[in-house]
Amino acid sequence: MNGSEISSRWGNFSHLYIERGAIDYPFTRRIRDRFAKARVVEIDDYKAVFARPRQQFQAQKESMKLILAVKKDRFLYDGSGHSQDFSFENFYYNTLMFNCVYNCDYCYLQGMYPSANIVVFVNLEDYFTATRDGIRDRSNRSQPLYQCISYDTDLLAFESVVPYCRAWIEFAREEPDLLVEIRTKSAAYRAIGDLPPTDRVILAWTLSPEPVAARYEHGAASLRRRLDAVQSAIEDGWPVRLCFDPVLAVPSWKSVYGELLEETFRRIDPTAVRDVSVGVFRMTKGYFQRMRRQRQDTPLLYGEYVQEGSTVTYPAGQRKEMTSFLRKRLGEHFKEDQIGVWT
């Protein structure tokens, strides 16, 4: 054993694991073409790869594999009680893929999933069917079905691999009682920039102070590039949402987030923004604990946190101060009902 230190790690998507049942789907063929050099492993069920015991999330993050699967059920999740719902009563989300190409230090997926590999569900039609059923059966018929499709992932960041944002935008165009949110930290707007806008799709950008983006949001676009993308989307006529979430208690957070807002509204005309949302860092306790077991290398998981019910977050006083600070600053540009706040 000479232990010679050659660089010997596979890059991302060196391997495609494909469920036998997923092989004939058009999206599968497209992805195989896109990664023509990838080694292909046929599998019976994605869980046999995705849910192996003792996988190391951060080790896998440096060489993510792609798993193509057919989702069998649960195409629509009831999201009421989660997140800021801007008083939409019919709030739903779905999981078109598991995991994300980015690697934010604070990402709860590290505590939620046993693996960092990306699962793409290729049976999009089944999701559309479930959404149509959801629209039909929604409880409050005076409101649309409000559906977040990039909830536990960053769909737009993956658009060049699977054009799901495009597919959903086209789907939403056909469904008058649907309102879709696509949330992203990417600058990949041009991947859908050729599509005419529709008011049935909100493009939502999560904005973070540049020092936070650079240090903790690995792979995601810089603040400047996110703002460029926001600007392009607004110019093209899309409804745009800006999300300041999670707000992190980094040193001098007040000036850091103050600068973020200044920079944002220097670049973006607030009257052209549909609405904004704010949320201070919080996480389900179980995920937080599992994340800590997975990694002991980021300050974001070690510090002053309190447990409130099943949530881990900052102490109440600090949380309140952070929320009111942002709310007040955003109040200079937005009406109360345009600001969604997680408290």
Partner: peptide, 15 residues
């Protein structure tokens, strides 16, 4: 084996 040795577990403990 040499290649396997270069892959660390990730999330390295600061302790």
């Amino acid at each position: 084996i040499a290649a396997y040795r270069t892959v660390s577990d990730g999330g390295r403990d600061v302790l």
